[in-house]
Amino acid sequence: MSNNNEAITIKFRCPAELEGKIPPPMPASLGLPGWLKAMPTQAFNTMSNREEDTVKRCPPFVDAMTSGFLLPLICDLKVENGAITWDNDLPAGGALEFPRSPVGFHDESQVVGSPLFEPDRFVIKFVNLWTIEAPPGYSLFFTHPVNRFDLPFTTLTGMVDCDLFHDSWVHFPARWHDTSFNGVLPKGTPVAQCFPVKRENWVAQTAAMTPDETSRAQELTNRMARESGLYRRQFRT
């Protein structure tokens, strides 16, 4: 990220015919699920016999959910007994052709030999009608919306060099894991979350702690045990 903390822009573009007709990507901080907003910040812990913080007050848990951008489902999906149907009013493409269906499919053969493989079962693909341009030197890390275990699907994870590849679509393969789901997946449901990643060379360095590092680690461990919310107050940026 920039040293002066200036905002860096990710550009999302859709065909002109679709402007205002499909939900736009949004900062993940604006797409938090209702269950997170509704859950309590503390709950009674029967093991410690006292009230303790829930994950709603865990900064790493929440910060991951509020970082990056969410990509939305372009229309309602009706799921009934394993069949997926939809009805949308998207116009046909003009100068640029684009798919009008919200989902596509990958044949099972494309995941044979992986844990995703099941005989006679497709991998679905959520259609994304926004091209995405990252600044020079940045890739985008696409994954399932973070901590959204309530969704009936799991989006596969991938990395795309969107500073160079930005004039076509990035669609999102997913495994529909809740085979008992019947109902409507609403338009705008987040189907993927993306994080900008600056491409840099990294190496791993391992070493035993020095006496000074050991002392600092023990001191911080003791402080975290004594002072509730220490990470949030002193280390979170």
Rank of each mutant, 00 (worst) to 15 (best):
G137W: 14
D178A: 08
V203G: 03
I132H: 01
D167T: 12
R121F: 04
P23A: 13
E219W: 10
S48I: 09
P60G: 11
F142A: 04
P23M: 12
N222M: 02
L70D: 03
F61M: 08
F69K: 01
R216L: 15
A38E: 13
L185R: 03
T85I: 13
D87N: 12
Y231N: 01
E200K: 10
A43N: 10
G93S: 09
P72D: 06
P135K: 07
T210E: 06
V55D: 12
M47T: 15
A28S: 15
T46R: 08
M224Y: 14
L129K: 05
N4G: 10
Q193F: 00
N45K: 01
D89V: 08
A208V: 15
I132R: 01
K187P: 08
E6F: 12
N201F: 07
D87P: 01
L77Q: 06
Q193K: 00
M1W: 09
S109M: 10
P59F: 07
A174F: 04
T179F: 13
I124R: 02
A192C: 11
W202R: 13
F61T: 04
E200A: 10
G20V: 10
E219V: 08
T221I: 13
V184D: 03
P60A: 11
L70K: 02
V170W: 04
F44N: 06
A28R: 02
S101K: 14
V127N: 08
A16F: 11
P33M: 07
R175G: 00
I22C: 02
T214C: 08
T157H: 14
D178H: 06
P15R: 07
S114W: 10
M39K: 02
P173C: 10
A192I: 02
E52P: 04
P33S: 12
V111S: 09
D120K: 14
S67F: 07
A204D: 08
L220T: 05
E108A: 15
C75E: 14
T157V: 14
V111K: 08
V160K: 07
G94W: 01
A83S: 08
F122W: 03
P25G: 08
D76I: 07
D89Y: 11
N128R: 03
E227Y: 09
G82F: 07
V123L: 10
R13S: 15
A7C: 07
I22P: 03
P211A: 14
M39V: 00
T157R: 11
S139G: 09
P23S: 14
I74N: 02
R50I: 00
R57Q: 08
L164C: 00
E118Q: 14
S139N: 09
G104V: 04
C14P: 05
E97M: 07
R199N: 10
L30Q: 15
F126C: 06
I124L: 15
F105W: 12
T154H: 14
L77F: 13
F98H: 08
V203H: 09
L32I: 06
L140W: 06
S114P: 02
P15T: 09
N88V: 00
N4I: 07
L90N: 03
A83N: 10
P135M: 10
N5C: 13
T189K: 05
R148I: 02
S109Y: 12
R100Y: 01
K187N: 07
E52M: 14
I22L: 04
N222I: 06
G68K: 01
V112G: 02
M65G: 03
E108M: 13
F141D: 09
D107I: 01
I10P: 04
K125C: 11
R148Q: 00
